[in-house]
Amino acid sequence: MTNIREDLRRVMIHDREFQKYSVDRRIYCVPREEIRLETQHNILFQLFGERYFFPRIDNPTSILECGYGRGDWVVRVAEEYEECEVTGIDIYPVHLPDQPDNLTLFGYNLNDRLDDPEVFEHKPYDLIHSRSVAQGIESARWPHYIRDLRRWLKPAGWLQMAEYYLNIQSNNGSLTEQSALREWWRDYVRAMEESKRNPRVARNLGQLLTDAGCRYIGGHTFDLPVGGWRPEPHMARLGRESVEMVGELLESASLFLFTERLGKTAAQVESLNNAARMELRDPNLHLYVPM
């Protein structure tokens, strides 16, 4: 567990606010982005059929979220299940307004062994939720991270994980290798790998869960549409809502990585992100983000 006072210090980089603790240690170098995270939660909640989790758990008594971010998921779950003890851990332990009484938050580096007795002792979980933490977890840590999570599950507990695969696809094949989105992805892969992170971990979660000894593993790829090209009215609406959010996601994921690891200037990164955003706004490309 990390020191809360140190966790909350901030530093300005390229006119964006970052967590100093995380940047200094090269853990999770993404700027603060409260509005995008709230929008992302609402979009994914709709994409997932307005479900907070997929396994059937009727009366959970203990739930853990790893990487609670702005708190959108963990707060709503705590409010939905008032008799359940809910715990959230995150590298940047922000204080949440109107925090439910049954919710406890801790600062924690997910690259460390999940064994702090103040957080985990005598708390076997019905559900552990881990989402969008790939940029912070070292490649070599993933097998141990999942084994740590499995250790804290009840015998009939469930582990739910979700990650973006940021190699954005075109449903009609119109996205070429010369596109800005393809260039962005190639730079992202190189920068992530140089940071000892796995840019493709979303595609490997099933195997990692199997290797960790988990049972009854199920998996599903959700394709988040970008733009209103889907024929179904609710998916078209969701796609229109996702355009700006995905553009902001690409910006936040690349700003520090591309300047720090690839030697690009902030202006070069901004230019690439602007070109990628233009493509995201093109309805003729029929884009989607696998998750």
Results as ranks from 00 to 15, higher is better:
M1S: 13
T2E: 12
V11S: 07
H14P: 03
K20V: 06
S22H: 07
V23A: 05
D24M: 05
C29A: 07
R36S: 10
E38D: 13
G49P: 07
R51K: 14
P55N: 09
S62L: 03
I63G: 02
C66Y: 01
G69L: 00
D72R: 13
E79S: 07
E79Y: 04
V86I: 08
T87D: 02
D90V: 02
H95T: 03
L96C: 00
D98T: 02
G107F: 09
Y108I: 05
D112R: 08
D115K: 08
E118K: 15
H122D: 15
K123G: 06
L127T: 03
I128E: 06
H129V: 04
S130V: 14
R131Y: 08
V133T: 13
A134Y: 00
G136V: 07
I137L: 13
W142C: 07
I146P: 11
D148E: 00
L149D: 01
L149N: 05
L149T: 02
L149A: 12
Q160R: 10
Y164P: 05
Y164F: 15
S174F: 13
L175I: 06
L175E: 05
T176G: 04
S179R: 07
A180T: 02
A180C: 04
L181T: 07
E183S: 06
R186E: 14
S195Y: 03
A202T: 03
A202W: 00
L205P: 09
L205K: 08
L208S: 05
G213L: 07
Y216V: 00
G219Y: 10
T221D: 13
T221R: 15
T221C: 15
G227F: 01
G227A: 02
W229C: 05
L238D: 13
E241G: 13
L250G: 00
A253W: 01
T265I: 01
Q268I: 00
Q268H: 02
V269W: 01
E270L: 04
L272R: 09
M278I: 04
E279R: 07
E279H: 12
